[in-house]
Amino acid sequence: MSNTYIVDGMTCSHCAQAVTNALKSVKEDAEINVDLAAKKVTVSGLDDEAKIKDAIEEAGFDFMGAA
């Protein structure tokens, strides 16, 4: 199952990698897909929204909730 979230503040590939790394630090085998243009992150294999939110915010981005 996958969930998609809106993440504000991502502007480049480095931002996308930072978000990916932050989420993989929570669960290494999670599948992360970042769409910079749409400001969306799709996460598969990690269903704990609170942990996802915390990881994204600790990486310096704004977690806006489910898309």
Rank of each mutant, 00 (worst) to 15 (best):
F63T: 03
K53W: 15
V34K: 02
Q17I: 15
G60H: 09
T11S: 12
F61T: 00
K39L: 11
E58H: 06
I56N: 11
S13Y: 15
A67K: 12
A38V: 10
V34F: 04
V7H: 08
S25W: 06
M10V: 11
D48L: 11
V26I: 10
D48M: 09
H14T: 06
E58L: 01
I32N: 01
G9P: 03
D48Y: 10
V7K: 08
N33S: 11
K39S: 13
G60P: 07
E31D: 08
G65P: 02
E57Q: 03
T20K: 11
L46E: 14
A22Y: 06
S25V: 04
G9M: 04
E28P: 14
N33E: 10
S44I: 02
A18W: 05
D29G: 03
I56H: 05
G65A: 08
L23A: 15
C12F: 06
C15E: 02
Q17G: 15
K39R: 11
A66H: 07
T4R: 13
F61Q: 00
S2P: 13
A22K: 12
G45M: 13
K39P: 07
S2A: 14
K51S: 08
D8L: 11
Q17S: 15
E31C: 03
V41Q: 00
F61S: 00
N3L: 02
D54M: 07
I56Q: 13
D29A: 06
A55G: 05
G65R: 04
A38W: 13
Y5H: 09
A50P: 08
I6A: 14
T42C: 04
N3E: 08
G60S: 01
I52S: 12
D54A: 14
H14K: 09
K39M: 08
I56R: 12
G60D: 06
A38R: 13
A16W: 01
A67Q: 09
A22G: 11
N3K: 12
V41D: 00
A16E: 02
K51C: 05
T11W: 07
A16M: 00
V34I: 10
K24C: 00
M1E: 13
K27F: 12
C15T: 04
K27T: 10
A37M: 03
D47Q: 01
E31H: 05
M1S: 14
T11P: 05
G60L: 09
M1G: 12
L36T: 04
E58T: 04
L36G: 01
F61N: 00
A16P: 01
F63N: 00
T20F: 07
L36D: 01
V19Y: 08
A66N: 11
V43H: 00
K27R: 13
K24V: 00
V7A: 08
A67H: 10
L23G: 15
S13C: 15
M10N: 10
A66P: 07
V19N: 03
V19M: 04
S13M: 15
Q17H: 15
G65Q: 07
V34A: 06
I6E: 14
S2C: 06
G45R: 10
A18R: 11
D62M: 05
A18V: 06
E58D: 01
E57W: 02
A38C: 05
D48F: 10
F63Y: 12
L46I: 12
I56Y: 10
F63K: 05
I6R: 13
H14D: 14
T11V: 12
G9I: 02
N33C: 09
D35T: 05
T42R: 07
